[in-house]
């Protein structure tokens, strides 16, 4: 009996000291992560007025019903989906390709690694500004296209190509990060497997298809999930491109940009939070679908 209380005491003491050690992390995470999440979920069902007299008014599902008839939400969703559908596969394949090339014994391997990785460590705001120069009507890209007799575009002003311009930029900037992840994974594949396959007479293509790719599956899952989450949250590039309007003709309007416009331009916090919640649900759903697709074979 006595023994047990002492043990208990010790355990409480341990618990307390444990939590004490964690306090800084808990406080920081609580204030900057958990409290905002709770606020988002709760206030999404409210009509919030913050400027002047602060007021909260329960609105039920009004904010969510409003989304259905808000044309700009659908445009933003469509743009974002198109962006994800094009950028994620290309950047994943490109990353894998680059990693495979760098995994062979080519000359100046480390130099290439650094060169490829540079865009990723550069701030995206700076990259966007550089690309706006490249995309300028009299800029590098158009001169290049013109030199080969290809059609030139008003990359910044034409709604048909504005989003494509951002896609191009983002693929170029994020593929190297995933390349590094692939590269690390490639080096974990045991060499003996390839040797065994060679003895069995497997062609290089078969080796890639039957050894490399299956081994990379968990990494591919990670890369695609991170890619999708990143692309769904596209904001800064389209913000700088269109100086915040999402134009021309809503061509670069993304969901996060729309949320920003409602929250800070129109001060419609409740609706903006409802949109945020919607975006979170979309990302979660897509990730869950992917998990079920990848699950069966990634267990081995």
């Amino acid at each position: 009996m006595l023994n047990k209380t002492i043990w208990n005491k010790q355990s409480t003491r341990e618990t307390v000291s444990g939590y004490l050690f964690m306090t800084p992390a808990i406080v920081v995470l609580g204030i900057f992560l958990i409290v905002p999440v709770i606020f988002t979920i709760v206030l999404a069902f409210y009509r919030v007025q913050l400027l002047g007299e602060v007021s909260f008014q329960f609105a039920g599902f009004k904010n969510f019903v409003r989304m259905r008839s808000d044309e700009r939400v659908w445009i933003a969703l469509k743009n974002t989906a198109e962006y994800v559908a094009i950028v994620v596969p290309i950047q994943t394949i490109l990353a894998l390709g680059l990693a495979l090339i760098l995994n062979t014994n080519i000359k100046g391997k480390s130099w290439f690694r650094v060169a490829f990785f540079l865009p990723t460590v550069t701030s995206s705001a700076v990259l966007t500004l550089i690309f706006m120069w490249i995309y300028n009507t009299n800029g590098l890209l158009n001169s290049f296209l013109g030199f080969f007799g290809l059609p030139t575009y008003n990359w910044l002003g034409d709604p048909d190509v504005a989003l494509k311009g951002i896609m191009l930029m983002n693929i170029w900037a994020t593929a190297p990060l995933f390349m590094v992840i692939y590269l690390a994974a490639l080096q974990d594949i045991p060499e003996s497997l390839y040797e065994a396959a060679s003895i069995d007479g497997a062609a290089p293509w078969e080796k890639f298809w039957c050894i490399t790719l299956p081994f990379l599956k968990p990494v591919t899952f990670f890369v695609i999930v991170m890619g999708i989450i990143g692309t769904f949250q596209l904001f800064d590039q389209s913000y700088i491109f269109s100086s915040g309007s999402g134009g021309p003709n809503n061509a670069t309007l993304t969901i996060v940009l729309l949320i920003y416009q409602y929250a800070f331009k129109n001060l419609d916090m409740g609706y903006a939070l409802a949109l945020t919640l919607m975006l979170a649900l979309v990302i979660m759903t897509v990730t869950l679908i992917q998990r079920s697709l990848f699950k069966e074979e990634s267990l081995d």
């Binding site: 309007s245 999402g246 134009g247 021309p248 003709n249 416009q261 331009k265 129109n266």
Partner: peptide, 19 residues
Amino acid sequence: LPTILTNFDNQFVSALIGQ
């Protein structure tokens, strides 16, 4: 006006380029 401005600019450009 801010709401009207955003919507006008967006559509006026699309009319200007002939969409």
